[in-house]
């Protein structure tokens, strides 16, 4: 079982809110999944390097040459709201 506090914290990190039904469900399901994942602790991983890329090869870096940017109307095409060439949202308080 995952507790109320953890669910609330995860909602905050994930930036969405669960309804009451989902909350109850998730408390149980996430709890079981996290418990299952705990089996990884049975393995001794001392000194093992964590893998972040399946194959390590030389990174290819990009030359510092200017490419043409996108057309502004394409960039704004999928936006819900725009004004004066900018994306528009409700006022953000810093």
């Amino acid at each position: 079982m995952t507790d109320e506090k953890t669910i609330a914290y995860l909602e905050e990190l994930s930036k969405f809110r669960l309804n009451e039904n989902e909350k109850e469900k998730f408390k149980d399901e996430l709890g079981r999944i996290i418990e299952y994942i705990g089996k990884l602790n049975k393995l001794d991983t001392k000194g093992i390097e964590p893998l972040s890329h399946p194959f390590i090869y030389t990174s290819s870096l990009r030359e510092d040459t200017i490419q043409s940017s996108s057309e502004r109307e394409d960039i704004l095409k999928n936006a819900h709201d725009n004004k004066d060439g900018c994306f528009k949202v409700l006022r953000t308080v810093e």
Binding site: T65, Q67, S69, S70, I75
Partner: peptide, 22 residues
């Protein structure tokens, strides 16, 4: 640098909004 860190857009200051993006 002439271009941004992860793409080839110009780093030039100013410019009409959202014209140096990809």
């Amino acid at each position: 640098t002439k271009t941004k860190i992860f793409c080839g857009c110009t780093t030039q200051f100013g410019g009409d909004p959202n014209t140096h993006v990809c």
